[in-house]
């Protein structure tokens, strides 16, 4: 196996300072000077540029920014947010709150891994009729406890269709930048209604990422990134020195039930 002599990047160019090659005099993102970008473009444009290599059209930028707002906070009941809150209330070093919460948000259930799988799923099926794909998947569904994700990004939450992702998808669908993946996802979600399933937030994100040309792996991390503000805000709210460790419930023994077999040897 032959390793590279230097790390290659097509993203970022650092022009060395004349007097010190360890310092950069200026930085360019895909050829654009960073300071010039800061003067002329907004954050979403530069974010898109960073990952896609070109600046977005106004319609693409609007899609991305709308998705970012939709995903900005998974809410205080989401397990990733609760991880941030547990860290906060336990007075974990504040710099750890976000990595902790993002690890939980990386999972295959309503997390980054599901977004990645969702992009692959939509890419693979968007040329087939959504209703036919849905019918086939529903026919092969296996009964299991809890929620069913019939495909990555689509399914039930707490036994029903989760209203908020449907609202997100409808909002994004009204935008001029909507693409084939969002359209296909809408048809697919519609085919699941009778089964009590629909869009999940991960599916909405996956379809927009697909339409904007992001690779599946990028979708996983971008989903984490876009949800990060809410996770951090909730964690910090409880990390405040004015908030005590008692600010979140700690279950009493009546509500922490240990199965008999876990205690049997000494009972």
């Amino acid at each position: 196996m032959k390793f590279a002599s230097r790390t290659v990047t097509k993203i970022w160019e650092e022009v060395p300072a004349a007097h010190n090659p360890f310092l950069a005099d200026r930085c360019r993102c895909h050829g654009y000077d960073l300071a010039e970008l800061a003067k002329k473009r907004n954050f979403v444009d530069v974010l898109y540029l960073l990952f896609r290599g070109e600046l977005p059209s106004p319609a693409q930028a609007q899609m991305l920014e709308t998705l970012m707002i939709c995903l900005i906070n998974p809410g205080p009941r989401h397990p990733a947010t609760r991880a941030a809150m547990n860290a906060g209330v336990g007075k974990t070093n504040a710099v750890h709150i976000l990595p902790i919460a993002l690890s939980v948000l990386g999972g295959a259930h309503l997390g980054g891994e599901e977004v990645e799988a969702g992009i692959r799923f939509i890419r693979r099926h968007q040329h087939a009729e959504a209703a036919v794909v849905a019918k086939k998947l529903l026919a092969s569904r296996e009964n299991s406890e809890g929620d069913c994700h019939i495909a990555p990004g689509f399914g039930s939450r707490f036994g029903e269709i989760d209203p908020v992702p449907q609202q997100m998808a409808a909002l994004l669908y009204e935008l001029s930048g909507r693409g084939k993946a969002l359209q296909w996802g809408r048809d697919f979600a519609h085919s699941l209604i009778k089964e009590g399933m629909g869009w999940l937030a991960t599916g909405v994100a996956a379809s927009v990422f697909c339409d904007l040309g992001f690779l599946p792996q990028a979708g996983a991390g971008l989903f984490q990134l876009f949800c990060a503000p809410g996770l951090l805000a909730h964690g910090l709210e409880l990390a405040s020195p004015y908030t005590s460790i008692t600010a979140m419930p700690f279950l009493d023994e009546e509500h922490y039930v240990i199965a008999q077999e876990a205690k049997k040897r000494t009972c």
């Binding site: 790390t7 290659v8 097509k10």
Partner: peptide
């Protein structure tokens, strides 16, 4: 293991002007 700027092999686009939106 500090890196100098030229330890990174940049292979992206040449410098270009940022257009206004």
């Amino acid at each position: 293991f500090p890196l100098r700027c030229d330890d990174i092999d940049y292979q992206g686009p040449r410098p270009r002007q940022v257009p206004f939106p």
